[in-house]
Amino acid sequence: MHAAILVFPGSNCDRDLKVAFEAAGAAEGVKVSMIWHKDQELPDGVDIVAVPGGFSFGDYLRCGAIAANSPVSEALRKHVARGGYALGICNGFQVLTETGLLPGALRRNADQKFTCKTVALDVATQNSVFTSEYSVGQRINTPIANHDGNYFVDADTLAQLRAEDRIAFTYVDNPNGSVGDIAGVLSANRRVLGMMPHPERAADAALGGTDGVAMFRALSGLAAGVMATA
């Protein structure tokens, strides 16, 4: 499995994500490439593009908005159009909504404050590679750390997301005002996941939590070339 992690100026969870991929996929020999935002092409054979947390371009204009117009984001769009997998965490989720690869938008938290704490999530679907190692209704603990994590979609889109089973995770105790308690959503083809919580911060027993490991384990099993045929 080959993961490409996009690095924008201001990304600050890029290394954390690399560590989580490598630790979970050590047995499979997972390969991780760091891709600078000015690159126009992804390396050959990339199975999944991961957009890390942080403050790409300082959150100026709107979180994720400038990154969505970086050269590498065009390569990301092509990768997804080809049926490639993509994962956006925190600022990465904001980038994925700004690129239009996922519906909705992330607004300022309801209490207007940056919030960093561990919250409980319910797994809402097992039907995606990201959530395939969890069970529906499983409760997992994952840290959040954001100022703009308040997910919004209009009522019609929300109904559609529900009808298509595209809500991946919900908050047990909604920390930021997100519509439908949504913490993570999938694309229509179920190959793009955006989520505000940080599974890569729940991937090491020494740091107090391992509930995120199952996602990285499942992704390690992605076989090269899957995206081209599916």
């Binding site: 600050n12 969870c13 290394r15 954390d16 560590v19 989580a20 947390g53 404050k113 940056f114 919030t115 960093c116 704490k117 840290p143 750390a145 940080h198 890569e200 911060r201 991937a203 090491d204 020494a206 740091l207 107090g208």
Partner: peptide, 14 residues
């Protein structure tokens, strides 16, 4: 106070 600070970025906070 401290929940307004990122206490875990860099993924090494014990």
């Amino acid at each position: 106070v401290f929940e307004q600070y990122d206490t875990q970025v860099m993924a090494d906070t014990v």
